[in-house]
């Protein structure tokens, strides 16, 4: 019963009504885009940790959170990669919502 990121995202959105799904989706994409954009210009450890914390929060809500995986992110580049990866999966399922 191994779910990948995309399946988990689908499961998450399917819990809500169709009208609610769209607003949730837009909020998710907006936040992921913000984090991804800010990760590019991270200039301090504090701002990096803040972005990582925000990403961790999103992962928890979408049941994608795997603490070990988030803890493994040590650099802005890794964070960017992880956020971009999730952003890509979210965009990919847009038509299904």
């Amino acid at each position: 019963m191994s779910h990948n990121t995309r399946d988990n995202l689908r499961d998450f959105f399917n819990r809500y009504s169709e009208t609610r799904r769209l607003s949730l989706y837009q909020a998710l994409v907006k936040e992921l885009g913000n984090i991804r954009g800010q990760t590019k210009c991270v200039d301090s450890t504090d701002s990096f940790n803040s972005l990582k914390h925000q990403f961790k929060g999103i992962c928890r809500y979408t049941c994608l959170e795997f603490d070990a995986q988030i803890d493994a992110i040590m650099t802005p580049a890794q964070l960017y990669s992880a956020v971009d990866n999730m952003f890509g999966h979210a965009v990919a399922i847009e038509d299904e919502l």
Partner: peptide, 15 residues
């Protein structure tokens, strides 16, 4: 201040 978290929490409570 995270719009996604806010939206999810709101959705759960509206339900």
């Amino acid at each position: 201040d995270n719009s996604f978290n806010l939206e999810v929490c709101n959705a759960m409570l509206v339900e």
